[in-house]
Nucleic acid binder design. Structure first.
Lengths: 204, 204
DNA sequence: CCAGATTTTGGTAGTGAATACCATATGGCA
DNA sequence: TGCCATATGGTATTCACTACCAAAATCTGG
């Protein structure tokens, strides 16, 4: 790696850190991009070259956790499906758990700022899509439409577990661990603890 | 109802229709708010008084479907849980199915425009939250944290079914009906067709 | 029908995010 | 050291969105 990429990573992190600082101090909406650029001692153009939108300054960390787990899953073709899915879920949760302050800040910002919440959900949607594509490749089945259906449902449920667990974990600081929560969620799903309608209907 | 509210509803719908027209013709990004205001023969101020953001011009219909179903559920306390949840899901799907072109346009716009996708997901998040709150009131249980957990998971799964079914329905025009799809999804979830990890772990 | 209270409207000015473009700086490399 | 690629900073511009105010339209009581 040359000196150029090194400096790139350095200024990138510098900008992100300064932005994080200003956001937590004065709020997301009260902080302008020019202020962030000034604090990081770069021009606004440079800032926009690294971060296409203001929201990415906050959410890049979450994005790395989610899409990184899918990328890892994609490179492990030998793992069979239930275990692989569980690994993806736990992998995401572990990485999030290792930066509690960052996750909490993201939650706070998303709660008080619509655009951050919107971007966060868009990222979640991307995670679901990529996970669905990978599941389609692994799921057995004859009818491609049926496989796609099952894959999309599974990816959605995985994301659902992650969201619910992280939320509960953030709202109860210190008292809960993510891994037991995730397994409790899977147990609920498997054991029928979810009040889904019984299959007394003749679905096609 | 006085003439005032009548005219309000009229201009509101006029603006939304003109916007829908311009969006489908020239795309979301290529259409400015001023153009919409000019097409509807109102000032930009008036447009912003009715629709706080550009995205709400597209997504108000979906919002009504989702939040309307939750509101209906809230006013039916005598319905027990599995049936109620199924009714909420089918209610949303029926309303969406009754306006296929609108749904398709929303999907197209969301696929090609990040901000629309973001707003759509934010709306879905609101639906999940409100449904979770209502489920908490109805679910039996001693530990409030456990009830909240189950409720959040259930609401997420309901939304997941809706999203997956609508998506499949939109992508296969004409060939699929939403209600059988929804029941197939519930059947998959109930019958263990989802490759969730088996509960061989001792969850707390 | 009319005068006053209230609401709706259109216009103006301004903020700030985001883009396009260009001249300049700086690091990598022969 | 000198050439090339790239990163940078600045400027100008578009456009979403807000705050504010004066005028027009609507409702209400006489």
């Amino acid at each position: 790696m040359g000196l150029r990429e090194l400096k790139r990573e350095r200024t990138r992190r510098l900008i992100a850190d300064k932005a994080f600082e200003l956001f937590t101090d004065h709020g997301f909406g009260r902080t302008t991009v020019e202020q962030i650029a000034a604090a990081a001692e770069v021009g606004p153009s440079t800032l926009y070259r690294y971060f296409p939108t203001k929201e990415t300054l906050v959410l890049e960390f979450v994005e790395d956790c989610l899409l990184g787990a899918v990328a890892w899953f994609r490179e492990q073709p030998e793992v069979d499906l239930p275990d692989g899915l569980q690994s993806v879920i736990e992998r995401v949760l572990e990485q999030l758990e290792s930066n509690p302050d960052r996750v909490r800040a993201v939650f706070d910002l998303a709660a008080q700022t619509a655009s951050v919440s919107a971007h966060l959900n868009e990222m979640i949607w991307r995670f679901r899509n990529e996970l669905t594509d990978e599941l389609v490749r692994r799921l057995p089945g004859d009818d491609p439409q049926s496989v796609e259906f099952t894959a999309a449902l599974s990816a959605g449920i995985a994301m659902n577990i992650i969201e619910t667990v992280v939320r509960l974990w953030v709202e109860n600081p210190g008292t809960t661990e993510v891994k037991p929560l995730a397994r409790r969620a899977m147990k609920l799903l498997r054991g029928g603890g979810i009040p889904l309608p019984a299959v007394n209907v003749s679905g096609s």
